Computed example of a mutant assay.
Amino acid sequence: MKTISILILFLAAGLHARAQLNIVPKNDELKEYTVQNAQPYDSLTNVDERSFAALPGQTLYMHGARNDSQGYYDTFFTGNFLAGSERQIYKDDGRGNTPAEAVVGKYYEVLKVWTRRDYLTAGCCLLLREKESGDEVYFNPYLQPRSMTCLGYYEKLKRYIGQVFFSLAKRVETEDGQIITPPEGAEYRCVDVGLKMNSDGAFLLMEGKDGVRVEAFSIGGDEVYEFVSAARIASLTERYGEKYGRQVAFRKVDTGMTREMVIAAWGEPYHKSENKMEGKTLESWFFSDDRYVGLLDGKVYDVRIY
């Protein structure tokens, strides 16, 4: 009898604990974008999460990913995989891959885009029509994000031609395939825009004062990954002063900077924490690549790069 009483008490406690759980329903709403309801495409970003909803009506060119000799796995389909359609591989080679020659070097019109987001995943499916054959194919942009270039994005890259840039001392590839690291501050000028097959796609061709030409890549807006433009340096110097403006332009963080300067230099941190102590506010900001910034009352007092 005592054992039965204990069991009943345990079950009652379990039911009570379950009743306290805050169950949040999963949000897996599927959104569909067509030419009629697509967001405006500003051509500043290529085929990525920032532009998915604006892509209907645009034309994409499949330049292909690096090392795609084995084809494309889980990337091209004959049905909408986000809507629960059977995941049939487009032109399956018998191993679950789409052969590279079936898709690379072709132009595609974006007919529709579907996006779905829940607490664990983000999904996107593009319905494309291959311009030559008329084939309709569903494309998963997450597995091969750099295999396609939007023609609108490529054309807008030409705005960089003629602009002066300065090196951020990052590794770059020369026209003949060598890897070099120009010294920080070395001056370059954008002379052309190009696109390589089986590579990262569209790039800027920069020429140094020594005549050596190197490749650089836009990262959206008016920023280039390997370089900073003279125009951006001037703008940030006007906003933050000579000392801090130039540091921010060269993506450096230093003591005395404000929150705004840190974000302008490194972007938003992936994690923040805040503590109040003796009337002061201490913040810890954590960034990718093992970078840390400590702020006291809104100003940087500690910078660490591990």
Rank of each mutant, 00 (worst) to 15 (best):
12 A>L: 13
67 N>K: 08
248 V>D: 03
27 N>W: 10
186 A>V: 14
67 N>A: 13
289 D>F: 12
79 G>K: 10
53 A>S: 12
117 R>D: 13
174 T>Q: 01
269 P>W: 06
153 Y>Q: 05
5 S>W: 06
274 E>T: 14
253 V>C: 05
111 L>T: 07
28 D>I: 08
267 G>M: 00
8 I>S: 11
265 A>L: 04
280 K>G: 05
306 Y>I: 03
3 T>S: 11
29 E>I: 15
100 A>C: 08
226 E>K: 13
171 R>Y: 00
276 K>W: 11
300 V>N: 04
287 F>T: 06
70 Q>S: 13
178 Q>D: 12
152 G>M: 05
126 L>F: 14
33 Y>F: 15
301 Y>D: 15
90 Y>A: 00
162 G>H: 01
112 K>L: 14
121 T>C: 05
298 G>F: 04
128 L>N: 08
137 V>T: 06
244 Y>M: 06
46 N>A: 06
200 D>K: 10
267 G>Q: 03
235 S>P: 02
113 V>T: 09
306 Y>R: 12
127 L>W: 09
305 I>D: 07
116 R>Q: 14
97 N>P: 01
113 V>Y: 09
103 V>P: 00
170 K>V: 00
5 S>E: 12
38 A>Q: 10
260 E>H: 04
10 F>P: 03
168 L>P: 11
185 G>C: 08
201 G>K: 04
27 N>D: 12
17 A>T: 05
29 E>G: 09
244 Y>Q: 02
299 K>V: 14
150 C>Y: 01
170 K>E: 11
205 L>W: 03
51 S>D: 01
33 Y>P: 06
108 Y>T: 04
32 E>D: 08
201 G>W: 03
101 E>G: 10
96 G>E: 01
71 G>N: 08
175 E>V: 03
249 A>Q: 00
229 S>A: 13
196 K>G: 08
12 A>R: 00
63 H>Q: 02
233 I>G: 02
228 V>H: 07
125 C>A: 15
57 G>Q: 02
136 E>D: 07
110 V>D: 09
